[in-house]
Every structure is written in C-alpha cells, then in structure tokens.
Amino acid sequence: MIPLSWYLLLSATLFCLGIVGFLVRRNLITIFMSIELMLNGVNLSFVTFAHQWHLVKGQIFVFFVMVVAAAEAAVGLAIIIAIFRARATLAVDRIDLMKL
C-alpha cells in the first residue's frame, strides 16, 4: 500500500531535477537530456492519476507524450548537429548569436 503522494512526490522531484539540469549543465546534449527527464517526470504523474481514477485516457496521453518526445528528440538532435557544424562547439554559452 503505497500512498499516492509518494508517486507524485517522486514525479515532482524528477521534474525539478530536470530543471536544475537544464540550468546547470553546459553541454547542449546534456541539456536536451534534462528536458527528457522532465517529460518523464510528468509522464509518471499522468500514469499515477490514470491508475487512481481508472482513466485510460491518462495512459493514452502518456502515449502521445512519448510520441511527441520522440519526434522532438529527432528534430532537436538534428538541430544540434547543424549548430555543431556551424559553430564547432557544443558549449551552450558560446552559442549566443541571438544576443542583441
């Protein structure tokens, strides 16, 4: 008998760890992986509630999230490759062409 709140707390923690990773890491790919971590945290909370309320749609939502995450990962990594070709670096602080 695990209280639901434990699952939810775990999900929140994973989410926040993802944000911290986004803020702290300097490598583009690692930042991208932190984003994936965030998405997984959210997925866990969806599944938790789907289980609690006997909603299948919650799980289908997770399914869609996975699909979108996959698409996003593909495109995002392609972008990273393009950036690497242009700037020859993966350090996010060096990629600042957008500054005014």
Binding site: L10, L17, G21, V24, L37
Partner: peptide, 8 residues
C-alpha cells in the same frame, strides 16, 4: 533518483 542525480 540516483540516475537523475548522476545525470546532473
């Protein structure tokens, strides 16, 4: 959690 921390 360990994996997430390790990631960071």
């Amino acid at each position: 959690l360990a994996g997430a921390l390790n990631l960071l």
